[in-house]
Design a protein around this nucleic acid. Structure first.
Lengths: 214, 214, 214, 214
DNA sequence: GATGAATGAGACTTCATTCAT
DNA sequence: CATGAATGAAGTCTCATTCAT
């Protein structure tokens, strides 16, 4: 290669480098909208502004494309989680509202669609489910669990399996996000995620409290 | 003829009456396993022990079959809900553990698969999502919400939007059921639903309590 | 059989005897409306008020049914032709208007549809075309041809191949009937068959005349 | 590369441009042979030397293919008609023999098959019948009718509805063409179209003549 | 690398036809 | 004989995928 690495590459070149990302972005939308089965490669291609064949230049099969999408979303979320990671030292009464508010925000982003998609296809792509679990769900659950355990050690929180307590804390937000995702088009009355985060924080913290710090 | 006229109907006839149900049962399995797109009619047919064409005798299109499956599951669950319906008069401290334990049991049945399926296809079949919402989710949520509201009126439960409180109560079970459903094949450590029901009951009831009846 | 042949059979029995005819009648309509390919046995059955299987009791295959229909129409028309058959002795100036008027009437009956159908399927059912030719077209053409030949012998009609003259006489009616049949639904201005018969009679007779009897 | 850039386009490209036409040509044969219902796409594909799927690349449905075929034939014939268009000024005694001879020639081409096909399917494709009517039949009939009307105005031709006179002129040729088409495989004695054209010209012109120019 | 063109494989669906009652 | 039920065979159509340019 005679090209120097860091000088501004010609626009055409830049475009080329972005292609895969553009395709993944388009695929994210299409898969999220229709699910794996109903998504058509040509829709992805058109949305990305390339030809169908070009998609196959970067992703040998539809499955590969799907995996790439799932991984991308995972890594994006992984970033967000890192932010939270620093936090488990803080008291639960501070951490829980923060976490749930963040979840409320996420719930309004595209992540709900992804969750829906992964849930729907988890039987067809168990390996993807595993990736998602290992790199997102387990991490988050781990942070939450260990924060709870620490609080228990400090005597702030009642005894009990900290992993199940994590479900008590996080479950309602998940339910809310999915509810909006699944019934969003059904004239159903949708829960207000921020209000839910606020109110559930109070309830669950009250329910967990040993009264030691009240 | 040795057949008595009025007893058992002729075998053919008998099968005919059962056929649709048999096919729906088979379809339930296949759809739950693979999702709508990946399910093939021929798999349903083979599982039901009939020919592909026979499936079409009873269900004009694949979509119709899917709808029939969803409706069947809805109606089965509707029955179970009727049982619960009598209950909202009882104190929340009795009702919540009962409900969550029931959910724990359900979670071990096939209903998780159905939920997964409906979640995955909710964008492609918004009408089905609506049916499921109107006939199952809204009903259950309604019962729970009104029970909570009554308890609030009695002064047993803290103030707050009773619908969101319903999410606080039920959400963790839903999260648990889906977690098992989605990550069941991923060597993930699965939550024990009964334990979750027991422990979350305590936490959430404590968190909701005004102390009035403590 | 203990049944006596000629006493009035019980109504049920009579019905049975008519079945094939009823089915053929229904099939005539359906085939005429849709053509062989698009006609469905079940439509025939419903129109005849019997079950699909019953059609197969009388006509082993769809083709057989089609043949039966074609033959029936042939024989009906054969009857009408017999009427005309007596006529070739009469002078052409009497015979032609009579024949064309009759054709005009026929053209308004269902026979146009049958012709359309036979024309459309003549490649798929060459044997039917042959039957139709031998038993209807050739007979009629024969009568017309010989009438013309006789008139030529009498010196009333100009010289020329009498078979082609038959085309000159009959062709415009055929064109008119088919025109109505094919373009009847196309907002096209349809020819008035009786007027055509009247006017063409005059023209063709004038054209054929040697002036010998004028 | 030995290829010169601007001469013949690459082979692939060239084929692409021809493909639709090749497929339509193949379809013309198959449809004409078997009619719409009995024609199978795979036969068309094989005859065109492409795969089944390729047919669908250019014609989304079998119906569309059929329409394309019908339109192609229409446009081909439209060209031929343009030739005739210049003619209506000439005296009927010149025009009629010309027209009928042309029809005799056409009758020996593939147009008979197309007519048969359109007649057979006119009920299933009324819109096609309309196209055929508007763009071919009505045009031709119009030319003929107005030529006749002019001749009447000149006093060369007897009074009478000129449109029906057009049927008198053209009908026998149509009958002859269809006769050959339908009974061609039936050992029937087929009319000689050129002889028919010649003889019918004489007869009908004589029949129409007022004697004004005799 | 990018793409227009082509296709293999396979899906859903239809319908004439069979068969047990 | 009449029929409800079931099916084999076949057809249209879709789509991920390949390949020559």
């Amino acid at each position: 290669m005679t090209k120097t690495r860091s000088t501004a590459p010609p626009r055409r070149e830049r475009r080329k480098q972005d292609r895969p990302a553009e395709i993944v972005a388009a695929a994210l939308q299409v898969f999220a909208d229709k699910g794996f089965g109903a998504a058509k490669i040509i829709d992805v291609a058109q949305l990305a502004g390339v030809s169908k064949a070009t998609v196959f230049v970067y992703f040998p099969t539809k499955e590969d494309l799907f995996r790439a999408v799932a991984r991308t979303v995972v890594s994006v979320n992984f970033e967000r989680l890192r932010t939270t990671e620093a936090a488990p030292a803080m008291p639960l009464a501070t951490f829980v509202p923060l976490l749930l508010q963040q979840a409320a925000t996420l719930g309004e982003s595209r992540i709900g669609s992804i969750a829906r998609m992964l849930i729907g296809e988890s039987r067809s792509f168990p390996d993807l489910a595993k990736v998602w679990h290992d790199e997102v769900v387990a991490v988050m659950l781990g942070i939450l669990t260990s924060t709870v355990a620490r609080a228990q050690a400090r005597g702030e929180v009642r005894a009990g399996d900290p992993r199940l307590i994590a479900f008590s804390i996080f479950g309602p937000m998940m339910a809310g996000v999915l509810f909006r995702e699944v019934f969003g088009n059904s004239e159903a009355e949708l829960p207000d995620l921020r209000a839910l985060a606020r109110q559930h924080s109070e309830i669950v913290l009250a329910g967990l409290s040993t009264g030691a710090d009240a």
